[in-house]
Design a protein around this nucleic acid. Sequence first.
DNA 1: ATTGAAAGAATGTCTGACAATCCTGTTGAC
DNA 2: GTCAACAGGATTGTCAGACATTCTTTCAAT
Lengths: 223, 223
Amino acid sequence: MPPEMNLRIAPRSVQQETVDKLRQAIFSGLFQPGSRLVESQLCAQLGVSRPSLREALRSLHAERLIEMVPNRGPSVPALSWEEATAIYEVRELLEVEAAGRCASAISKERLVDLKNSLTAFEEATSSKDNLAQVMTAAEFYSIILVNCGNPILEEVHRGLLARISFFRGRSMSLEGRAQSSLAEMKDIYEAIAEGNVKEARKAAQRHLVKAKAAAQLSMTGKD
Amino acid sequence: MPPEMNLRIAPRSVQQETVDKLRQAIFSGLFQPGSRLVESQLCAQLGVSRPSLREALRSLHAERLIEMVPNRGPSVPALSWEEATAIYEVRELLEVEAAGRCASAISKERLVDLKNSLTAFEEATSSKDNLAQVMTAAEFYSIILVNCGNPILEEVHRGLLARISFFRGRSMSLEGRAQSSLAEMKDIYEAIAEGNVKEARKAAQRHLVKAKAAAQLSMTGKD
DNA sequence: ATTGAAAGAATGTCTGACAATCCTGTTGAC
DNA sequence: GTCAACAGGATTGTCAGACATTCTTTCAAT
């Protein structure tokens, strides 16, 4: 088979492109929580037609990134402290399980990926770049989830990812939180590298408990 | 406030209606697994326009009820035995936790709802009506999830519900499986009614282990 | 000031259109 | 006869425009 095969550029569809742009915009807090998303405005800003935009909005709604009230259109939900707590509790359930499974299931090659993402997070930490911290931390966990041996676990977690990233962004902006996270994630990595299931679960749990506390601090301190 | 207030009938939108119809159709196996869903055909059958249909398809895709390959359109995925296993494992994680939380969080009134849904399932069991069994069993678990005190747990579980129902339908059709399920669900109910967290978790786990075994039997036996 | 009506804005939905892409069956070359 | 190129139809991706329905807001009348 000729090498051109992989050159086939995936011309991402307008709708997919739109979903990505909007998701990023919501992530980065470009829209005020509670603010309405007016279709005609978004069409103009993104340069897409209303049908395409509406399909994108449906996708985002399914991700629970936007709310849609009939006849009132979509809006960016204001994430509450209660919701943050609930999400962290479910994260704990999922990520502890995933870390444990990953410790026994991950391959040597993927372990290298995990190590690399950890290094990337370390660099982001010292760079004080909040967005980079969020992205690399998400990458680290994504690798764990993808290699935990249960695709549904990964799927479910991905459904929470948008909101996780939102809260992560806030807690990471706390003084010293990124540094602590780094240490905790190193523990997780090492347990996984050793194939130590129990320790991986414990490390993941420790990380979550602290992340949750940090997130709550960042929420209650500002809201 | 006048009593007419609640008479305000919610005129469900075309897109929502379409989602429901298609979901039901997929549930009931009206479409062969792997078969393609042609937009124009569906529009004609459902009597909706293409934009509305496409929005509905996006919603269903987000629920993972259909696959969408670019330029080839949506199709009904063939659910595999591996996927069934993965789903049951995640169910175990979620439902055991939910049962435990529910045991300590549910109110008296909601406990009555739970009891009622159990009775409904009992009737469905004796009636040998497979669809009714699936629906009432889903209702029973839905009540547990809604009252577990963590809305995210419920949300995540609902995202799996479509596929859970699919597998449940197959395993319930096994001789005697509905009867066993009933007994196991009664155990769960009683533990919750007593507020016994540990026992509720154990009962939920026992149920899941057996349901998983039954589902695998129903999958491997026919595929 | 409160209520009510009208104007304006936004959503829900449809029709129709066209380009890009995929699938299929036929033709043509070896 | 088999395989490959190709033409044609079918299907998806995307857009523009339209209109009824449903908020929302403004303004006027009591």
